[in-house]
Simulated assay, not measured.
Amino acid sequence: MAQSAPLLRIGTRGSPLALVQANTVRSMLARANGADEAAFEIVVIKTTGDAIQDRPLSEVGGKGLFTKEIEEALLSGRIDLAVHSAKDMPTISQPGLLLAACLEREDPRDAFISLKAKSLADLPQGAHLGTASLRRQAIVMAARPDLKVTPLRGNVETRLRKLESGEVDATLLAMAGLNRLGLSQHATRAMSVEEFLPAVAQGAIGIETRGDDNRTRQMVARINHTATFIAVACERAFLAALDGSCKTPLAGHATLSGDTLHFRGLIARPDGKGAHDVTGNGHIRDAVRIGDDAGRALKKIAGPGFFD
């Protein structure tokens, strides 16, 4: 008997974390749409970001390298939706694509991980901290200019192995990824949002579809977490206003309290020697405007040349 065509084809990267996220979306879609999980096919797509492991992504094109091939598969019709870590999504979607939904946000905080110290402050003078994130580098260097920050690439498990083998004395990873992989025991200390402002959309899973694919959009809408979607829209508007890319250390985090949205954004120099932050508050219906206003305000405060 011929196998029936899948109800939807879900595109994803092939890392352990990406597959956990894609399978979570598949389970939720099946429940919400009264279908069997087997009706949703997971299609693994290798991205340029996965292939390049020997240098920081900021040197070769930024975070869009984790989504480019998946978005191409979506535009060509090879897949019906894409599951991304929302923080990896380009600032502006490719024409014809849109962020259709977000799952409820996981813990947005960064985890400090070390076998030699209980916190960033406790690291010995001149210790090596490994990270591929310019945001994490800038915040670390502002707090501990004596530390040596070195690039550390690879998936979560790879980076933990490199830490355990002594390549670096400490690293920083997203709590969300550790939690989803069942590896939260590796976190030496969760850094508060106040002391270590997260990346835009950190902890959120984004679901991308074609703009004209109403059937898929309707099915995906049933699993959208409205509060997360609103917060991510605010944060991404902040990123867009700053023309944010991997080459600029910036952070932004929105939280909702009833109908009120609170936002804080930060821009910094990679060496940690200059930083500016801004806050914004308002009604949740103005989420995009609040993020956009915050980005424009920071651009003005920083002045020309700050991002050079």
Score class of each variant (00 low, 15 high):
D243C: 14
T188W: 13
A204L: 02
P198M: 03
G203H: 08
Q202D: 10
G203R: 07
F238V: 06
R215Q: 11
A201T: 04
R222L: 14
I230S: 09
V220S: 11
M191D: 04
A190N: 12
A233N: 12
L197R: 07
L242E: 04
A233S: 15
H186I: 01
A201Q: 06
Q185C: 03
R222D: 06
I207D: 03
N224F: 00
A237D: 10
N224D: 15
A201D: 14
A187I: 08
A221Y: 07
V193D: 00
R217C: 01
A237C: 14
P198H: 04
I207L: 15
G206M: 08
I205W: 01
A221F: 11
A187V: 02
R189P: 03
G206W: 05
D212F: 00
A237L: 13
F229C: 05
I223R: 08
A227V: 01
T226A: 15
L239K: 12
R217S: 02
H186K: 07
N214V: 12
E208Q: 10
I223N: 09
D243A: 14
A227K: 11
V232N: 09
E208W: 07
T228Q: 08
A227R: 06
V193T: 13
R189E: 15
N214E: 14
E235M: 11
M219F: 10
A233I: 09
H186M: 06
A190W: 02
V200D: 05
T226F: 15
G211V: 00
T216H: 06
T226P: 05
A241P: 12
F196P: 10
A233F: 09
H225D: 15
C234H: 12
T228K: 07
C234E: 11
I205K: 05
R222M: 08
R236Y: 03
Q202Y: 08
S192V: 00
D212L: 00
